[in-house]
Write a protein that binds this DNA or RNA. Sequence first.
DNA 1: CCCGATTCCTGTAGGC
DNA 2: TGCCTACAGGAATCGG
Length: 271
Amino acid sequence: MPELPEVETIRRRLNTVIHNHTIKSTSVHNAKLRWPIAPDFAKQLSHATIHSFERRAKYLLMQTDRGIVIIHLGMSGSLTVNSGNHPLETHTHVEFHLKDGRSLRYRDPRRFGSMHWIPDKPLAHPLLRNLGPEPLDEGFNGDYLYQASRNRRVAIKNLLMNSRIIVGIGNIYASEALYLAQINPIRRSDRIACVRYQNLARAVKSVLESAILAGGTTLRDYVDAAGNPGYFKQNLLVYGRQGALCNLCQTQIRNRTIGQRSSYYCPHCQR
DNA sequence: CCCGATTCCTGTAGGC
DNA sequence: TGCCTACAGGAATCGG
């Protein structure tokens, strides 16, 4: 399921294979995503030239000379570049046919994703307007997290997954970062000392950067823009490893539900 | 404002 | 082998 490292991996790949390529036509096979694709979507993008792909949180921003497409991959979305004659896979909802014969395809079996065209000012869009800082920006640090945690009684794992506080962290990397920082995921965010938030901020940056280097985490069906899986799964320390032994203390990794999401942690190391 | 619960969706796994 | 159910999760939205 694409979190920040997966979206960033896709973004980088797209920028290497699509630069100043022009859209010949756009096909919307199924407009019923998380939000319906607007009826004029294909028309707005006819003959648009794609300049680059940017990222904000888990959103991809396709920059063209005819506006911007805000793309979210939900939990099962992929965006791949195919040769024009590549067989169309099921659940391919949108195709951008490029002039050079290739097609950029948006596929999303579970349809939790979305696609919006806007003329300009993407950061003012309602979906992006209220997002917290990027975890890999220098402005994000332990002091920021500590301040954000004051007067908030939620479990720290829920704080990490709140995109108004900090973006890009989903269920996998929240568990991994808390393990690295040795913080119990259920601990109330307002009962964690400042020094521990310094560790947590470093852990967040570390796990996200490592995952990007590995090309993201493929649990089942994540692939990048060229169809390649990511290899961070072999580096996961707790996520999905219920019953396995903690690398540090040999205690069994536990799984419990926090905020309607499965969470993995070491009950001995994480306090 | 804060926060927990609900909701959308489909592929997969597990039980019988 | 086949049917049924539970589960996976990003994030908006709703209700208290």
